[in-house]
């Protein structure tokens, strides 16, 4: 890692911390108990922390197979202060539909049902049941915490793994040479009322989006960027700074899509994508031309996104 990169990240982090500490609207209650078994620096835990702070105690979680299925606690313990239905890998969209239907028939329309799945459980194996739920406009919030690979099973590629990344199934020179699936666009095409990206380095924005999503009827989708130091081969104290770089480089832009057509971009990045790639072990094999190629893809995507806001 280059020292200049480190210095600039530190600067960003401090700026953001200063911003955050001023705000009194931060929810103070925590719904995750200490002693959970996530890896040090797990971005997915930070995502859950903010999500539950925004959503509050009247929340039921549906969690399929993923890292969070373990982090949420092993029998007979639980690390969460809200009820959790653990379910099979590919079923979040359908199982959450069932929970919602049951609550409705019992007259409980207040509780927020939240499906909380990884990128594999969302982009890949669970895509069918998610698509079905979106098409029916089921009244729940679906959160994909995206660590860009199958981390629970040891860092295998998913269709959320970005171009250029090494995983245990895209090893050596066979690093992933396909683009990441654009899940927000796929879901916007379902014309669900709300789809947004969020990032753990932007807690204000993230909490705002969860609160907003909570009060919308129908299927809501939040794509939460969740860095994974273990899988990405970065030091565990870089979780947040790397997450921030993802936004600052437009690698993971923050934006919202209402009813599948009204786009709002929340942040505008201006840094080169190499700032993001070079600090991560999973990209360290990339040659300059590969990085330029990725820069081209990011620029294309960014322009395409901007065109949609017009």
């Amino acid at each position: 890692m280059k020292s200049t990169d480190n210095a600039s990240e530190k600067k960003c982090m401090n700026t953001n911390t200063a911003e955050c500490s001023n705000v009194s609207h931060y929810p103070s209650t925590d719904y995750i108990m200490p002693g959970h078994v996530a890896c040090p620096g797990c971005g997915a835990v930070i995502a859950m922390k903010f999500a539950l702070q925004a959503l509050g105690p009247k929340t039921i979680l549906v969690i399929p197979a993923c890292c969070w299925a373990v982090v949420a606690g092993v029998h007979p313990q639980t690390s969460l202060k809200v009820p959790v239905l653990h379910t099979a890998f590919e079923t979040s969209g359908a199982a959450a539909s069932g929970v919602r239907a049951a609550l409705d028939i019992k007259g409980d329309t207040e509780t927020t049902v939240v499906a909380w799945a990884g990128d594999g459980g969302t982009f890949d194996i669970g895509f069918q049941s998610l698509s079905g739920a979106c098409e029916r406009n089921e009244n729940f919030l679906y959160v994909c915490y995206d660590n860009e690979a199958y981390m629970n099973t040891g860092v295998q590629r998913s269709s959320a793994t970005p171009y250029g990344a090494r995983t245990t199934t895209t090893p050596g020179d066979a690093w992933k040479n396909r683009r990441k699936k654009n899940i927000i666009e796929a879901l916007a095409a379902h014309r669900i009322p709300y789809a947004a990206t969020a990032n753990i380095a932007y807690p204000d924005d993230m909490i705002r989006k969860f609160k907003k999503a909570k009060n919308i009827q129908g299927t809501r989708f939040i794509h939460a960027y969740a860095s994974c130091p273990t899988g990405w081969r970065v030091p565990s104290d870089q979780t947040v700074s790397i997450a921030r770089l993802a936004v600052q480089t437009n690698f993971f832009p923050l934006y919202e899509v209402e009813d599948g057509i009204r786009y709002t971009i929340n942040t505008h990045g201006d840094r080169p994508v190499s700032d993001y790639l070079k600090v991560q072990g999973r990209f360290k094999h990339l040659a300059e031309k590969d990085i330029q190629c990725i820069q081209g893809m990011v620029d294309d995507d960014w322009q395409l996104l901007q065109r949609k806001t017009i």
């Binding site: 199982a95 539909s97 929970v99 239907a101 049951a102």
Partner: peptide
Amino acid sequence: VESEHSAMAACIGAASA
């Protein structure tokens, strides 16, 4: 639902509630 797999998943969700 969009499949039998989801039909049973939805029943599991509802019965759990």
